[in-house]
Design a protein around this nucleic acid. Structure first.
Length: 203
DNA sequence: AGGAAGATCTACT
DNA sequence: GTAGATCTTCCTA
């Protein structure tokens, strides 16, 4: 039923990991229930040199997980939403990938109930929505996604061959000069909608 | 204490 | 499609 991604997968630059996480399956175990969704949108974040990074102001109590080993779960709150990140690069090098959207595959009824919506395309198409649908909160901070027994894992179920879109990160005040947001073009229905952008040729 | 923050929802034009 | 309120935590003063 697919292989749980190991620690090695995450010991690389966040942009590479972000791109390769597309098509992998996010698995959330709750008691005797399992929720699954294919990752369709991600963003990469670096360390202090990245103005949009949580590590921007150096190591602090709440962002210390950024310096943890690759494959560590890092969750924080923005505007009342929990956002799920996975740490990349070797321990001590702060960087992470934000998982922004998944296409629900299993446990869909439960997700819809968690989110109080009826459209499956609107249940996990955004980082805050995804966390709510998958019941992900701060409690999971510091756990390892490569632990097959853990409540959150990422599995390779063989999805591949899709077209990858790329552009600038959403919602950040100040971005880098490189596009660090990745998404699956064929699954655009399940990808978050970028806020209205001003005249720009990018897309 | 005050406000910002990697967002979302609702109620409008 | 757009504007505004509101979600919760942590940083900064």
């Amino acid at each position: 039923m697919g292989r749980v991604l190991g620690k090695d997968f995450f010991v690389r630059r966040p942009d590479l990991v972000a791109k390769e996480l597309l098509g992998k399956v996010l698995v959330r175990k709750i008691a005797d229930d399992v929720l699954k969704g294919m990752i369709v949108e991600t963003e990469a974040y670096y360390g202090p040199e990245d103005p949009a990074s949580r590590a921007r102001r150096g190591k602090l109590p709440h962002n210390r997980f950024m310096w943890e080993e690759p494959g560590t779960i890092f969750i924080y709150m923005v505007h009342g939403n929990w956002l799920l990140n996975v740490i990349t690069e070797p321990k001590g090098v702060p960087s992470a990938v934000l998982i922004r959207a998944v296409k629900p595959l299993q446990g869909i009824q439960r997700m819809l109930r968690n989110r109080k919506v009826s459209d499956v395309r609107n249940v996990a198409n955004g980082p805050g929505k995804l966390s709510k649908a998958f019941m992900i909160t701060k409690d999971l901070n510091g756990l390892k996604v490569y632990d097959p027994e853990g409540p959150v894992t990422i599995v390779d179920e063989g999805f591949s061959g899709f077209k990858v879109g790329r552009n600038y990160r959403i919602g950040v005040k100040e971005d880098l000069d490189v596009p660090l947001r990745f998404y699956i073009v064929d699954e655009i229905e399940y990808v978050s909608k970028p806020p209205v952008r001003k005249a720009s040729k990018l897309d």
